[in-house]
Design a protein around this nucleic acid. Structure first.
Lengths: 180, 180
DNA sequence: GCGATCTAGTTGAACCTTCAAGGAGAAGTA
DNA sequence: TACTTCTCCTTGAAGGTTCAACTAGATCGC
């Protein structure tokens, strides 16, 4: 499936519709794109199910607990947590509400900024993490690291860093410094 | 964020908890994994928003229309469509219901199998695709192909094929032929 | 100090996904 | 034929995500 594929004019050269002629993907690029979309979707589904089964939460929620577990005093400002997980504050709000119901996370007012909230990992939450971590690494290994050569692991790292850097929702004017 | 990270015993060798000692990720692997998770999440969010804005549907739904547009007579059995998109039949059912409301897809009974349904792309659906394809390829290019060298594109293809093959939900007994 | 503006975080509604259950027809077995 | 089993697809409920709107507190400019 996916992407362009409405490349009805065969090749790639001349002018036709409104605006400039789109730069369609080559066959090779289309194949890579399809593999990428399928692999990422299969892997995310796989990990979601694995964690839902073994830890009672989806992959993203697990990632939030991990992040908290590594923070000083196991607590973090909501916004920092959201940035670290690459999700919106709204999504995080809903997520933390759910994790709070489970007793795995709690909120507290931030002393230095009255608007702020800290989320912190409870002992119970830490325990869930400790129990489910081995199964999760194993799943990640089996799906990815055990199947790739060390060179491929490095390549994947470089590639994903490029993609992430391109999309990091930093200040949208970051590359338009002359605008302010 | 992510994965193991509850590696409280530092190194990786000896026995401790129940079962075998988990094979934690190395630092390098953890960094790659974090990049992977972040990049895939940022990219999927980006494309979802781009398509929601320009085509009025999420990335997956768009992929369904593309798949239909490439099928003979622009129609496909539901199960085939689900397999092609790597989603469950349930999810597809809901998705097609929504696309049907938009007038982009319709269902018809399959003549050869009374249980079956074909989904087909309407002219309206095709038109939406035709209009939004250029913007979508452009988004994919900007986020990925314009930033990677041809070598990296090949590497990504190989890597993603390995991962997808590992997870393809083919018959779970496929590698246990002696069981039946 | 004071008003305009910005940031932190939450909320509810609409939408999407998952899961378990179920109806109906096909296919295998005897 | 009758029975079991399997496949195709749908459904409803529960839970997750998105989007826009909103409150409250910080910050900036004067």
């Amino acid at each position: 499936m996916n992407t362009a594929s409405i490349n009805e004019d065969g090749a790639s050269g001349t002018a036709s519709g409104s605006g400039a002629e789109p730069r369609w993907l080559t066959d090779r690029e289309q194949r890579v794109w399809r593999s990428y979309v399928h692999a990422t979707m299969l892997l995310e589904d796989h990990l979601d199910r694995q964690l839902q089964r073994d830890a009672g939460m989806p992959h993203i929620y697990y990632g939030l607990l991990v992040q908290l577990s590594q923070a000083p005093r196991r607590r973090m400002r909501m916004t920092e947590l959201a940035k670290g997980a690459k999700i919106t504050r709204s999504r995080l709000s809903h997520a933390v509400a759910r994790l709070e119901k489970n007793g795995w996370v709690r909120r507290e007012d931030c002393p230095s900024d009255k608007r702020g909230q800290n989320a912190y990992l409870t002992d119970e939450g830490f325990e869930v993490l400790r129990r489910s971590a081995p199964g999760h690494v194993e799943a990640v290994r089996q799906a990815m690291f055990d199947r790739l050569t060390p060179e491929q692991v490095d390549q994947l790292g470089s590639i994903m860093r490029v993609v992430a850097d391109a999309l990091e929702p930093s200040d949208p004017n970051a590359d338009l410094p002359w605008l302010r």
